[in-house]
Write a protein that binds this DNA or RNA. Structure first.
Lengths: 198, 198
DNA sequence: GTCTATAGATCGATAGAC
DNA sequence: GTCTATCGATCTATAGAC
């Protein structure tokens, strides 16, 4: 159940937002192909006509969700970039954010980080090519250039920096990890940084 | 294109194996729900009747693939456990194996590590609860107990050990990483071990 | 713009011959 | 055991009233 107010879904009232939130929950929990339009109608309270008028087709709902969530992620990365100077602080802040979003808005995190978008959005780039993920890697690349991270292949540094956290998010969303992720942040990052610091 | 001989698919000749290999390729590249039975018939050369007689239904093909691949992975983990004593060597060997399989049998790795099985196999456990993944984590847990890995939460150690590699596999399968993974193994593991060693 | 009723197409699964 | 022809269910998308 999504909380009443939400970082990734500021708009909770419009009918369009109701459709998006219902679809998000169904897509994440049952999968895109196991979700019929009728289910979205029942869950959202909107009608078939409304949905086709505003989203063109079923794929259009997923496309709107995809772009909406990536745009929100980009805005949150802007905040992090402005609030922190060093690669170490920025990466840590990114992981803290992702952990918090996993706990507070698991459906959204599941849709962003966990779903196989190519299967139902054939014309979208792979999510890891999306700008939000490119920018996350950019924090690491910049850290190497500035000497804040020890010299190594940039992609290797990026997967070390975020790989453990992303794996942890997956395990949490799948129910393998039963405790809130916030309790792991300090320990995870302290050790991860041992692999990166100069 | 799968190679002519295969670690994960020793049997290449039987009609059953032809169906499994065709389905694997289609499921990984197009997704389970975008693959019709008719496509599997066309790709494998078997008939509808043959498939339903041997697999009961479409889900049965995916189920057979899932169990077959996890069983093969378990056998390969047996080999690693027998060939290496320390956690450091075992984890490194696991990552080396996964990197090699990603390059040589990308469809299989995509199906094991990348697909959302819950969507089309509702009665199977999440893949990260499967025995192969539990055993991979077990190598890490044992390393902590023996003092080969510095004291920390076991799950944190496990995601640090494998998270970077698994992330790299995902990026490689999605085409973000363009070079073979073997070229990254040494550097990735050398730095990752800095986060784990006592 | 919004709704309901329905068309149109696909696909999984089976029946029945061999 | 294997095959082909076909049924029946489901779901997306649209037509047409309001």
């Amino acid at each position: 159940m999504q909380p009443a107010s939400s970082v990734l879904f500021p708009d909770l009232c419009s009918r369009r937002a109701k459709v998006l939130r219902a679809a998000l929950r169904l897509f994440t929990q049952r999968g895109f192909f196991n979700t019929s339009l009728q289910m979205i109608v029942s869950e959202s309270g909107a009608s078939v006509g409304f949905i086709y008028h505003h989203f063109r087709d079923k794929e259009g709902i997923a496309r709107a969700l995809y772009h909406h969530l990536l745009e929100r992620m980009n805005a949150l990365l802007d905040d992090i970039e402005a609030a922190h100077r060093t690669a170490e602080e920025r990466c840590r802040a990114v992981i803290k954010l992702l952990f918090e979003l996993t706990e507070a808005e698991g459906d959204s995190m599941g849709f962003i980080a966990h779903a196989r978008h190519r299967e139902f959005l054939p014309n979208e780039k792979a999510i890891c090519s999306a700008s939000a993920f490119v920018r996350m890697r950019g924090f690491v690349f910049e850290g190497i250039e500035k000497g804040e991270i020890r010299p190594m292949d940039p992609m290797v540094a990026a997967v070390i920096a975020y790989g453990g956290a992303i794996r942890m998010i997956g395990l949490r969303l799948d129910g393998v990890i039963e405790q809130p992720l916030s309790g792991y942040l300090e320990e995870l990052w302290a050790h991860t940084w041992q692999a990166l610091h100069p």
